[in-house]
Each structure stands twice: as C-alpha cells, then as structure tokens.
Amino acid sequence: MRIVIQRVSHASVTIEGKVKSSIGRGYLILLGIGSDDGEEDIQWLVKKIIGLRVFDDANGVMNLSIGDVGGDIIVVSQFTLMASTKKGNRPSWIKAAPHSISIPLYERFCKVLQEAFGKPIGTGEFGADMKVELLNDGPVTICMDTKNKE
C-alpha cells in the first residue's frame, strides 16, 4: 500500500456536484492498493498514521499527532499511486490491485483507521470521478509505502 498524507486546513470530496465528505483541520489521505497488499499493510499504516506527529505544539515544533489536535481525516482511494513510470512516458498500472482485491481492502483500511482513530472519518467513493479540494497546511505532505518502510 502507498499513501500520501497531506496536512490540511480543510478538505472535501465532491462527486457529481454533491459534497460526499468534508473536514476542517486534519489529514487528507490518498490510498493506493497493490495486488500483494493485505492486513499486515493496513495495520502498519494505521499505526503510523495515528502516531504521526506533524502538527505544531505551543513552541511551533511538529510534535503533536492528529488525535492531540482533535483533527479530522478523509481517505480517498487512488489507484494512480501504484503507477510505474520505469518504461516510457505512459504510466503502467500493473501493480494496482483489481477491484476484487482493492475494494475490500479499501473498506477494511477505512474501518481499522476509524476504530483506531476513535471517531468517524470521511471517505471518497471507490471508482468514482471525484473532485478533491484541499488547502495544504505548511505544506506538509508525507508519503509512505508498506513495501519500503522508511
């Protein structure tokens, strides 16, 4: 699994002109799911997301977690994160999981994250043409890959 976490002042997901989810301060998380991803990847990412300290404390140091600041979360599925650009100029999506794998894993990821977070999270809609709007705060953008745990 690959994620891009963006610390935001606000974010929203709109589908067919209707707002599906919106948040104030928090995280917009873009989630890419590969064919070989599973429960272990979900557990590792959720633990990292909940513990990540990228919000400023009273001294202006990034030392607080999403829970510490009472933030919100939106998770949006994004198969394009699994792109391979090794050959040529047209990305290959061969590493992206098919719907039969990715939909249940996306739903499981959102459920586990919400349980660990302790409050509802916003989502997009898997496979929909979504308009994602955000105001990146910082900007702070963190990328994580469960196959390359750095």
Rank of each mutant, 00 (worst) to 15 (best):
residue 114 Q to C: 11
residue 96 A to I: 10
residue 32 G to N: 00
residue 103 I to C: 08
residue 52 L to F: 11
residue 87 K to C: 07
residue 138 G to Q: 10
residue 26 G to W: 01
residue 42 I to A: 01
residue 80 T to R: 06
residue 85 T to K: 13
residue 21 S to E: 05
residue 120 P to V: 07
residue 30 L to C: 02
residue 93 W to Q: 12
residue 43 Q to M: 12
residue 74 I to Q: 05
residue 28 L to Y: 05
residue 112 V to W: 02
residue 120 P to K: 14
residue 100 S to P: 05
residue 39 E to A: 12
residue 23 I to D: 00
residue 80 T to N: 05
residue 144 M to E: 10
residue 55 F to M: 01
residue 69 V to F: 00
residue 135 L to W: 14
residue 147 K to M: 12
residue 49 I to A: 04
residue 54 V to E: 11
residue 84 S to H: 09
residue 55 F to N: 04
residue 44 W to H: 03
residue 79 F to A: 02
residue 44 W to P: 01
residue 119 K to Q: 15
residue 96 A to E: 08
residue 114 Q to I: 05
residue 34 G to S: 12
residue 132 V to C: 02
residue 23 I to G: 03
residue 85 T to P: 01
residue 71 G to Y: 07
residue 50 I to W: 00
residue 81 L to Q: 09
residue 47 K to F: 09
residue 69 V to E: 04
residue 66 I to P: 00
residue 80 T to P: 03
residue 145 D to K: 07
residue 116 A to F: 04
residue 113 L to M: 05
residue 16 E to Y: 10
residue 27 Y to M: 07
residue 63 N to T: 08
residue 86 K to A: 14
residue 53 R to G: 06
residue 147 K to I: 06
residue 43 Q to E: 14
residue 99 H to A: 15
residue 89 N to L: 12
residue 75 V to E: 04
residue 60 G to Y: 08
residue 47 K to Y: 10
residue 105 L to H: 00
residue 16 E to V: 11
residue 125 E to Y: 10
residue 133 E to L: 10
residue 28 L to W: 00
residue 135 L to C: 13
residue 37 D to W: 03
residue 146 T to Y: 10
residue 99 H to P: 15
residue 16 E to W: 00
residue 35 S to F: 09
